[in-house]
């Protein structure tokens, strides 16, 4: 194994992620865990595990990002926006538009051909248009994550979920179920509604720029498919999409 030079930590609202890289930026090891309330304690423990895995020495630099970035000890602290751009650029080697749907935030980041952030937008402070929105509603429908794709693909029609507010949408979905609407069709409509919200946040994407996707929600193929349908564009899901922020932090800290 090559030598670990830096570790990036992404302290998100739902998950805690860390990535160890070598001097070339190759990922040596990574950890993804559910976020615990005591961020510093979790970081101390999990970081020690990761360090042990890659036999990291004392000289290893730590980069931190994510909403809890200021609450962990690190050599470098950067926002998720810059880190996602760095991580994505490292994997793709080119500019484009990165859609990152996380638990609490949805970010659209325009990345230049040299990896710089050209512009970004983020959802408002409420959960509409985020992974949390999806999570809450799916839970309400009692649809476990591994069934989502199956149900989505089975649905011929879709029932749109028109409320943007998570709380209102939840009650809307409850009444749709009460009306006897097909769960599969609601699941499909739910993804399409979210996709349309994300697309309007993204605005006009120039036809010559590629679209990438990161964040935990990128693992949900129904969401990706809905976004593809909504934008009419190809979307490339980055490898280990939930690790991009941590990777960017590790790269920046090198």
């Amino acid at each position: 194994m090559t030598e670990c030079v830096s570790i990036g930590i992404d302290v998100g609202s739902t998950t805690w992620k860390a990535v160890a890289v070598d001097s070339k930026g190759n990922i040596l090891a990574s950890i993804v865990e559910e976020a615990e309330p005591l961020i510093d304690r979790q970081t101390e423990r999990a970081l020690a595990e990761l360090k042990a895995q890659v036999k990291a020495g004392d000289g290893v630099r730590i980069g931190a990002t994510g909403y809890g970035r200021k609450r962990v000890r690190a050599d470098l602290v950067l926002t998720e926006i810059t880190c996602h751009a760095r991580g994505a650029f490292h994997l793709t080697g080119k500019g484009g538009v990165l859609i990152d749907i996380g638990g609490q935030d949805t970010k659209i980041i325009k990345i230049g051909n040299n990896g710089d952030v050209l512009d970004f937008s983020m959802n408002d402070k409420c959960a509409a248009g985020t992974g949390r929105f999806l999570e809450v509603i799916l839970k309400r429908l009692r649809v476990p994550f591994d069934e989502v794709a199956l149900r989505f693909n089975k649905a011929v029609n879709s029932i749109p979920v028109s409320n943007t507010c998570t709380v209102f949408a939840e009650s809307e979905v409850v009444s749709l179920v009460a009306e006897g609407k097909e769960i599969d069709e609601i699941v499909k409509g739910l993804h399409q509604s979210l996709a349309s919200r994300v697309a309007s946040l993204a605005g006009d994407i120039p036809p010559d720029s590629e679209i990438f996707m990161s964040g935990g929600v990128a693992l949900n193929e129904s969401m990706v498919k809905s976004l593809v349908d909504r934008t009419g564009r190809r979307i490339r899901v980055l490898n280990s999409p939930q690790l991009i922020g941590a990777l960017g932090a590790a790269l920046a800290a090198r």
Partner: peptide
Amino acid sequence: DERSLSGEQ
């Protein structure tokens, strides 16, 4: 704008 309204409510 129908989007800013919860119709049922």
